[in-house]
Structures are given as C-alpha cells and as structure tokens.
C-alpha cells in the first residue's frame, strides 16, 4: 500500500466495486479479443450486479472495458452510445449464476470472423477483480499481475515445452503462479501463468509456435 492507494485512484463513479471493478472485468475481455473485430457481446449479470447494475452504471462500465477504456475514462458514461456507433451489439441478461460471487458477470463475445469466447469473473471489492473461467475452463487470476493464458491440447509434455521455452528464451522471467485446467482428458486445456516481470510481446508469439498450443494471450495488468 502506498499514499496513492488512499488518495486515489482517479476513477469514474459511483462505486469502486460496481463501476471501476466492472471496467476491469471488461478489460480482460478486451485483451482476449486482442485487436480482432468484435461483433457483439452477450453479458449475463448475477447477484448484486443483476440487482443494481443500472444505478451503478455497471452495464456501461463493462461495455467500456470491453472496448478498451480504463476505469478513469470519461467515455464510460457514454459507453452504450459508443458501442452503437462502433457497430458492437450488446445485450444484458439477469441470471442467478449458482455458487458465484455476488458481483459476477459472464461475458460471451462474438467476433466478426465467426469465433467466440466466454469469460466469467467477479468484482470482489475496492476495484479488485477475480477472473473465474475462460471458455468454460476454470482459471483464477486477478489482473494485478501480468498473466499469460495458453490455450492448448491436453497432451503430455506441453507444459514442459512452454515453461522450458520461457526459461531458456527469457531467463529473467519468474513464474509467480501457475494453474492448469482442462475440459476433458486429451481435450482443450488452458494454462494460467502469472509472472513477476513485464514479459515482451514476442514471448506470446514464441509460445504460439510450440506444438499443440492453439493460442496464447498476454494479459498485462488491467
């Protein structure tokens, strides 16, 4: 903690959990979309998010984050209009997601190239977030650290290939957290790798080259 955690952050009101945290959840999707063209998003709100989203501007905040705005961007207020202008479709549905944190959003995004993806995460207070799942696979990261997501086929040796390459190619990188999740044996799997340092963009390209890796995304601090 430093003095700017107390006098700060600069943010768009009214609520650190329902507005600022919601922007950060949206920003995770922005990173997942990764500069590809977004067609529409279907956003499911659960718990307190579902009950009070209009009064807190949670809908605008999520959409603003998805479009890449930050928790201090004044554009948050006009995010619905901005999405309309950019031709990004959106819908908000209330649903009680079982066992989820009270401030949970599930964002299903559809890209213009026909592919799609789903992220589920929660705003856990004070602007902090926890991403719970990506494409139906369990993950667990808070966006405070640089996080590398590696989507791959569940085959022996893939983890070793990725971590070895990280070590030999980028010896300064230190992994602070690692998690593997898979849909079924031999099916799609996802590695969540958090690192202490600021990894170069090229690392992601190098990971994508590895056999059985289908995609890799670097989510810098959101």
């Amino acid at each position: 903690m430093n003095v700017f955690d107390i006098i700060g952050p600069v943010m768009i009101g009214p609520s650190s959990s329902h507005t600022a945290g919601a922007v950060r959840l949206g920003r995770v999707v922005n990173k997942l979309v990764d500069n590809r063209e977004l067609g529409r998003v279907e956003i499911t709100l659960s718990g307190s998010f579902a009950q009070t989203y209009k009064g807190h501007g949670t809908d605008r905040a999520l959409l603003a984050g998805i479009m890449g705005y930050k928790s201090y961007s004044p554009e948050i207020r006009d995010a619905l209009d901005i999405a309309d202008k950019r031709g990004i479709g959106y819908s908000f549905t209330k649903e009680n997601i079982k066992g989820a944190h009270p401030n949970t959003a599930r964002i299903h995004y559809f890209l213009k190239d026909g592919t799609d993806g789903v992220m589920q995460g929660a705003s856990i207070g004070g602007g902090n977030i926890m991403v719970n799942s990506i494409n139906g696979m369990k993950v667990e990261f808070n966006g405070d650290n640089n996080t590398i997501l590696v989507m791959h086929e569940d085959r022996p040796g893939v983890i070793a290939s990725v971590t070895n390459m990280m070590h030999w190619g980028y010896s300064d990188l230190n992994i602070s957290n690692f998690r593997l999740s898979r849909q079924e044996k031999g099916g799609d799997a996802i590695m969540t790798i958090e690192v202490d340092n600021q990894p170069p963009e090229k690392l992601v390209d190098d990971i994508r080259e590895i056999e059985h890796v289908t995609n890799a995304i670097l989510i810098r601090r959101v």
Partner: peptide
C-alpha cells in the same frame, strides 16, 4: 458517473 479521486473511497 463523473471523474473523481477516491479519498479514501468513492
């Protein structure tokens, strides 16, 4: 939904 400085909170 204006811009503010949380001090210490919103």
């Amino acid at each position: 939904m204006g811009k503010i400085v949380a001090a210490p909170t919103a």
